[in-house]
Amino acid sequence: MFRTRRSTDIATGVFLAALGATAAAAATGIGEGAGGQLHPRTFPMMIGALLFIGGAVLAIRAAADKSGGSKATAWPDRSGWRLLAIAMAGLAAYVALSQALGFIISSLIFVPWFIRYFGRYSYWAACSCALGIAAFIYFVFIRLLQLTLPIGPLSFLG
């Protein structure tokens, strides 16, 4: 499944066509604008329809071309998939943690985890990187550039 360019092209084509059809269908429900010559649904419907056609053409051409697209798609191996999933989960956890605890604390957790997991550097190196980045967030982003970043329980730092 999805090992060759032909099979992935068919799959993406079908997916994009479905996406286009969904968008075009959803666009029919767009409400009336006021005045003007064109309805606000004009563009979304047109783009949805074009995406449907384009996706369909991609899928059909790939399906018809049995010889050309045999080149293998560069998917990762088993351990590659695992690492990919873990990295993705780590990123998602970082965003979720930032929402809950603010960027400083979440970075203090995420940065050393990432360094340790993907690099196996010493705790010392991981923690000093984390502290460095936390200090940078605080002094440069919050203090110097005055960004209103959430800092969760650390809000007493102002």
Partner: peptide, 27 residues
């Protein structure tokens, strides 16, 4: 062809939200 699809996907993503002129909610 893939470039065109990529552009269409980008356009479609940008359609989500309020219509910049009328403020009607779309997609």
């Amino acid at each position: 062809g893939k470039g065109l699809l990529s552009a269409l996907l980008g356009l479609l993503t940008a359609m989500i939200g309020l219509d910049p002129l009328s403020g009607v909610a779309r997609l």
